[in-house]
Design a protein around this nucleic acid. Structure first.
Ligand SMILES: [Zn+2]
Ligand SMILES: [Zn+2]
Ligand SMILES: [Zn+2]
Ligand SMILES: [Zn+2]
Lengths: 146, 146
DNA sequence: AAAAACTCTATAGTCGCTATAGAGTCAAGT
DNA sequence: ACTTGACTCTATAGCGACTATAGAGTTTTT
């Protein structure tokens, strides 16, 4: 059961170049080669690539995935690290969600500011964007002394 | 009122290199130079950079910001485009939020799968990640025929 | 004058791919 | 055997929005 890179791409829903990229990044082990130097993949590669794609669909970074693969490759280990990693990832996602929601609220506020007037000059949106006190910059920026 | 790049950076809460980058990208006009070839900025630059940073804090891309600046530079125009751009941006943010929420739900489901067992091999999380049917791939992937 | 702090340009790196160029390989048709 | 076409190979550059570095020059402070 040896398939070529194109078939693997089809099976995994991932581009050929991406597969080669994963190989270069050390996520996929180097496969056997045919006489004509084509990559030949087996079941293990297929399954591993699906694992990677699954993790990617969950927005994990390649380095998170590398860590998970490393754990998977040593099945005798304690799975505590898996939990830790997943937990950290969930928190990252949560943080991004709340940041985006705050963002959206601000954007919607901004949208209200255009009273449907005509000129750009009078548009409340652009005025709002030009106003530095429009929304709190306290979160990221705490060094005001100088 | 001419300030140097470092002061502008402090005022705008943005790195020196980033300011130079904005200049190269055409978002900030080339400033005057001192005898020693240092950039010298005036009020207009400060205000414009604050506008840019404000937009960036709303996660707008530089090309969206470029468009807004272009509109702002021609104040007689109709502000309809401003609205359109903002509306599109809000929708993008909304889409990202819902994608992230779906993601989070999946991640939380996954987290439940680890029953606190010990070995990585038996960990439900890794098993879940290895299972291609774990979550619907119908959204992105519709070409199953071949 | 010397040291520290700032600025200059140019270049490469980040992440997770995507796109391109130019060459080689393979299977099918004639 | 020859050609066509689909596939694959390596190597390199580009995306976006920066960040980091090197090596030189300028200004300010001591
Ligand atoms: Zn308006
Ligand atoms: Zn604001
Ligand atoms: Zn577990
Ligand atoms: Zn899943």
């Amino acid at each position: 059961m040896e398939i070529r890179i194109g078939d693997l791409a089809k099976r995994s829903g991932c581009e050929v170049v991406t597969i080669r990229y994963y190989e270069k990044e050390g996520l996929l082990p180097k496969p056997a080669r045919s006489g004509g130097n084509f990559r030949l993949y087996g079941e293990a590669h297929i399954e591993r690539l699906q694992f990677i794609r699954h993790c990617r669909s969950l927005d994990m970074t390649l380095s998170e995935i590398r860590a998970l693969l490393g754990l998977r490759d040593n099945p005798m280990q304690d799975c505590g690290e898996v939990n830790t990693l997943l937990e950290a990832h969930i928190q990252q996602v949560e943080m991004r969600v709340s940041a985006l929601l705050q963002l959206k609220r601000h954007l919607v506020d901004l949208r209200e500011k255009c009273s449907g007037s005509r000129s750009v000059e009078a548009c409340g949106i652009l005025q709002g964007l030009g106003n530095r006190n429009c929304h709190g910059e306290s979160a990221t920026n705490s060094q005001t002394s100088g």
